[in-house]
Amino acid sequence: MTAHRPAPGLVLEGVEFAYERTPVLENISLSIPAGQFVTLLGSSGCGKSTLLRLIAGLQTPDRGRLLWNGAAITGTSLERGLVFQDYALFPWLSVVDNIAIAVGKAHPKTRKAERREAARHYLRQVGLESAIGKYPFELSGGMRQRGAIARALALESPLLLMDEPFGALDPVNRARLQDLLLELREAAPVRPTIVFVTHDIDEALYLSERCVILGAAPGRVLADLGVSFARHANRRADRQSLYNDAAFQSLRESVAETLAADTLKRLIAA
């Protein structure tokens, strides 16, 4: 083993992935330092969810390497939690039992009562105390995604992967959960690294410190932008004025143009 310690964080080196000979991802190289909030932004079919699945270890790349804190990613790990767009909770278990499973994984030596108590704590944190004894089918979409976030918190993963977690929600719930995510991240004792997949430009610019734009067919990095808006401490009180901010608008336009140019190129090529 080498003497120097690798920089903590996520490293992707020349990652390629094809589905039945159709290239999905082409030569993706990224380095994400620990603690950073990165969004992967791209249109449908750009392979951004596939990239997230590779990082989670649900699939293996055809070529290239993925490293988390210097170690190669082979298979899933509790170090890397994934929040799905839907179906994050098992429908046959009550909400509290769903979270308790994750608590039990993070702390295998705890007793059942302790796990449930911890699960209740996480549910209170995401504002779901009213749903503790309920089943997922009794909850609205927004409440279910709160449960999914609670489960991700309970896993205590230092790397949090989120696959369009708010994609199926109405705008009001979406904004609420975006703010909840930012609050929870700020309140965390150790800030988790977050890789957040979305196709919503506003969401990407609002949430993250860095926005990686992916082109489609095959998926590749079009642009890698630092985003400064996330550092505005009072942005939540002022979401509308941020949206009206000239710098925000010009960045949004240039991101939209980048995505549109890529789409146009593919249309011409087709």
């Binding site: 589905y19 249109s43 449908s44 079919g45 392979g47 196709h199 789409t263």
Partner: peptide, 16 residues
């Protein structure tokens, strides 16, 4: 699950 992704039409971004 990537079938849907690889088959997605190029116009999807415009339609959005």
């Amino acid at each position: 699950t990537t079938i849907a992704e690889t088959l997605a039409l190029p116009s999807a971004a415009l339609a959005a």
